[in-house]
């Protein structure tokens, strides 16, 4: 694999509510290099800073110190909506990733124009519609025949699959998945995860996926990162990562003072 660095975090720090009683140092001197084609799974206890890390990359809030470099460009000060051009995102809450009162095809059309200046041309063309139909049919949810249905009428799993499609249809430099299967029932979660692996492999997407499921974390991707109290405490890749067992991982986790809950062990 080529060793091109896709994302580089240099000494990233973030403290919420500085100077107040609620002061919370959520990211502490994070250094991370993500190589092109990496599929990194991120694990860590509640409040470890996983989502904060992802939001920092997306620009949801400004970081206190440090640099974020994406594909060679310093994006540290770029507003969130401008970074979106390079990033695909799927949130944990299926409600967050789509516009419920808009049609499936309208949602897709919005995503298809990510990073493009929005003009006064029609929001969707006939040719695109065929393309969307084709893209939707691979989800095997029958959505290809429901292009004009409002997204709010879809189930959580359907919405999450749609969001995944929206995030990847226009190939992002980096795909960010924040526990995107956590709110789904086990069967749907498995399907959405399979779809994720399929799409990322096919498009060779550089991906960061947060998960609470240790088995998934080991099985998916080529690299695993563990966070604890705003720091990256463990970072393995390649053979070493593949040969990890859940037991070993839990041990590591406990050593660093993490609390184990059922959800991490059950698949």
């Amino acid at each position: 694999m080529a060793d091109k660095v896709m994302l580089k975090l240099e000494n990233v720090c973030k403290t919420f509510n500085p100077g107040s009683v609620n002061e919370k140092s959520a990211l502490k001197n994070i250094d991370l290099e993500v190589y092109e084609g990496d599929f990194i799974t991120v694990i860590g206890g509640n409040g470890a800073g996983k989502s904060t890390l992802m939001n920092a990359i997306c620009g949801t809030f400004p970081i206190d110190t440090g640099k974020i470099i994406l594909n060679g460009d310093d994006i540290t000060r770029l507003p969130e909506y401008k970074r979106a051009k390079y990033l695909g995102r799927v949130f944990q809450d299926p409600m967050l990733g789509t516009a419920p009162n808009m049609e499936i095809e309208e949602n897709l059309a919005l995503a298809y124009r990510r990073g493009k200046t929005r003009s006064l041309m029609p929001r969707i063309t006939r040719k695109e519609r065929e393309f969307y139909r084709e893209q939707l049919s691979r989800l095997e949810l029958g959505l290809e025949n429901r292009l004009t249905v409002k997204v709010g009428l879809l189930s959580g799993g359907q919405r999450q699959s749609l969001t995944l499609l929206m995030a990847t249809m226009k190939k992002p430099d980096l795909l960010l998945l924040d526990e995107h299967t956590a709110a789904l029932d086990p069967r749907t979660a498995t399907k959405v995860l399979e779809l994720t692996e399929e799409i990322t492999a096919e498009n060779k997407l550089t991906t960061i996926m947060i998960t609470h499921n240790m088995m998934d974390a080991i099985r998916c991707g080529n690299r695993l990162v563990m966070m604890q109290e705003g720091r990256i405490i463990y970072d393995v890749s390649g053979e070493e990562k593949k040969s990890l067992s859940v037991r070993e991982l839990l041990e590591k986790f406990r050593e660093s003072g993490g609390e184990i809950n059922d959800r991490m062990v059950l698949s």
């Binding site: 979106a84 808009m102 919005l110 006064l120 041309m121 929001r123």
Partner: peptide, 23 residues
């Protein structure tokens, strides 16, 4: 019904998603 107008509707509907889609 234009790209821009559609962006406004998305903004009102789900600002979170809109930002993530570069609006």
């Amino acid at each position: 019904g234009t790209e821009f107008g559609c962006g406004i509707r998305a903004t009102g509907n789900n600002p979170n998603m809109s930002r993530a889609q570069g609006i």
